[in-house]
Design a binder for these strands. Structure first.
Lengths: 193, 193
DNA sequence: TGTACATCAGTGAACGCGCGTTCACTGATGTAC
DNA sequence: TGTACATCAGTGAACGCGCGTTCACTGATGTAC
């Protein structure tokens, strides 16, 4: 029981340290034989799913915090959550990769993981909906609009993690993110005002 | 000389077949001993860089073709290239992952790869600039606006590749992409017209 | 209170795997005189 | 034209690696009577 917790912490530690993750390394960090994890997880993938799930829970908390103080200013909330999103991805890059990159979503195994990632996404959706109710955000499928926003910050995060962009320093990255979201809210058309 | 070409083709084939890529497998496919590749590439990473570079060249051609017939309709060109972008990612998913995911951009090694990926990006930029000249796209740093568009389609592509979205079928995906870009062009604000 | 048994978390040896890379080599091709 | 040599692409054995997983096991803890 308690080892399960220890293993997950060790996994998080391993992710913080390096790029790859192996069962044996996690067991080593947990100070336990390399077969012990099989008492608590069916296989490596199941452990990764648990790690990803915990990541999404924390991730959701970050987004929620960013949104919290801006409940009735949806446009600012959108900015703040977007920045928080990218910040989380940068600061927990390897964990973030596990959350998104491990093909854990194919067969509908790991429903708890689906829930956790869905919950994080719903935070975005709820902001859009609040904006629509308030009349500051255009009407339409909130899910669809949220997906557009999600794709953009996710794409930016991935480009940054993969070193595709020549930007460094968290401050610069946050400024760039903010600018991108601002521009995205306004759209590309020449403003008619 | 000719083996180099054969190896790159074998690598492309390997990418089309499976998820992973190994030097030994490529050599096997090329019908050659597993050490032969070292005659033509310093190491595995160098081969991957060449594979990624070729991917970006083809990718750029796809985007260019999508843009070609819409030279003086930048907004449509933006849509068309966006759809072409996502289609390429879906249809060459493993290759696409190598192009973006392999940390090939850290140290400025592989300048040819940087050129190829830069050229693909410039296609987006040029569309934005054309729109600005024409007066249909708002003014501002074209690079920055293009980055916003790029991040969005890249993010969408990655979410699709990682199975994060419950959408399947190329038609549905393309429709969704189109809708997203359309919405993105207009922005999130309530239209003042 | 004491005995017999079941449960179950963790162990450590072993299996089989494919990988990237090295090294001394072979054998064909090209070049110089 | 023929000989001696250099170049260089490709070979195949070998190294060392870490991995995920299995298996029979140990030893502690809990439970039933």
């Amino acid at each position: 029981m308690i080892l399960r917790r220890t293993l997950l912490d060790a996994a998080r530690q391993a992710l913080a340290d390096g790029n790859t993750i192996s069962l044996r390394d996690i067991a080593r960090r947990a100070g336990v034989s390399h077969t012990a994890p099989y008492r608590h997880f069916a296989d490596k993938e199941a452990l990764l799913a648990a790690v990803a799930e915990e990541g999404f829970v924390k991730f959701g908390q970050c987004l929620q915090e960013a949104k919290a103080s801006l409940e009735n200013r949806p446009l600012q909330a959108l900015q703040a959550t977007g920045v928080a999103y990218v910040r989380y991805a940068i600061q927990h890059s390897t964990h973030y990769r596990v959350m998104f990159g491990q093909n854990l979503y194919r067969c509908g195994e790991y429903p708890a993981l689906l829930d956790a990632s869905g919950a994080a996404f719903e935070i975005l959706v709820s902001i859009i909906e609040a904006g629509q109710v308030q009349g500051t955000i255009k009407s339409g499928e909130a899910q669809q609009l949220a997906l557009g926003a999600w794709a953009q910050v996710h794409g930016l995060a991935m480009l940054l993690l993969d070193g595709q962009l020549a930007v460094s320093g968290l401050e610069n990255i946050e400024a760039m993110t903010q600018q991108m979201i601002q521009s995205s809210i306004q759209g590309l058309l020449v403003s008619s005002g």
